[in-house]
Amino acid sequence: MGDSLLSLLTEEQGRWAEANGREARKALAEFRVATEAAGCRLPSLGVDTQTVTGSVVVMLGGAPPDEVRRLTRYVLAGVAALAAEEETAPADDDPAPGSVSLMWTPYDGQLVVDCGTDRPGLFRGADSDRWRLAPVVHDSGPDWLADPFKVRPGEPKDRARAETALINANRKRWVS
């Protein structure tokens, strides 16, 4: 027989934590470059993975008050600049032709949740402007296309939810 649900969840949680860890390390590197450019030295920056939950956080650590105040001034100046940009930006939500949009993209086979349908699925690639998702449990239904802006990374609880729903559906068929 196949792997147990617990081992599958543990494996998925490890993949999820690893992917989030990569993202956290990238975010940390970008933050370190930005703070150093602002003249702020934050020596305690780091990434921490919670062993029980598998969640990953960027630890901002401690800094002397003068460094925090300097960073605060830069953040507030950036907020003001972004607000001014938004006031002058065109109301049209469509990006200009040829513009680049930075967006999270899952890896092939990554557990995701289509928030438009509230269904967990596995990322299978992009079809034009949609993402192709497959059911979490093999042969439990057809693939579907989802709006990438309505898809979030899945968590182990999402896989458990999908597998539990399938088990319950099979039980109903067996009883009938």
Rank of each mutant, 00 (worst) to 15 (best):
94 D>E: 15
28 L>I: 09
84 A>C: 09
27 A>G: 11
49 T>C: 03
31 F>E: 02
48 D>C: 01
68 V>Y: 03
74 Y>D: 04
18 E>L: 06
68 V>S: 06
24 A>V: 04
92 D>S: 14
72 T>F: 04
34 A>C: 05
40 C>E: 09
75 V>Q: 11
20 N>D: 04
28 L>C: 06
79 V>R: 15
83 A>D: 15
45 L>I: 07
35 T>P: 01
17 A>W: 03
84 A>F: 13
18 E>S: 11
63 A>I: 03
72 T>I: 01
22 R>H: 10
84 A>Q: 15
80 A>Q: 15
54 G>K: 02
46 G>S: 04
92 D>N: 14
26 K>N: 02
15 R>F: 03
35 T>Y: 10
78 G>M: 09
46 G>K: 04
76 L>P: 00
69 R>G: 07
15 R>T: 02
32 R>E: 14
29 A>C: 02
60 L>A: 10
24 A>H: 01
78 G>W: 09
60 L>I: 12
26 K>M: 05
66 D>L: 05
54 G>R: 03
55 S>I: 02
36 E>H: 11
27 A>M: 09
31 F>T: 11
28 L>E: 10
57 V>K: 08
37 A>H: 08
70 R>W: 01
22 R>A: 11
24 A>R: 01
55 S>M: 08
63 A>N: 07
21 G>K: 03
27 A>F: 03
94 D>V: 15
84 A>H: 14
67 E>V: 12
93 D>C: 03
49 T>Q: 10
51 T>S: 10
82 L>T: 10
93 D>H: 07
66 D>G: 02
64 P>R: 13
30 E>H: 08
88 T>D: 10
33 V>W: 04
86 E>Q: 15
94 D>Q: 15
34 A>R: 14
77 A>T: 11
25 R>V: 08
66 D>P: 00
71 L>P: 06
33 V>I: 10
69 R>E: 13
81 A>L: 14
20 N>I: 00
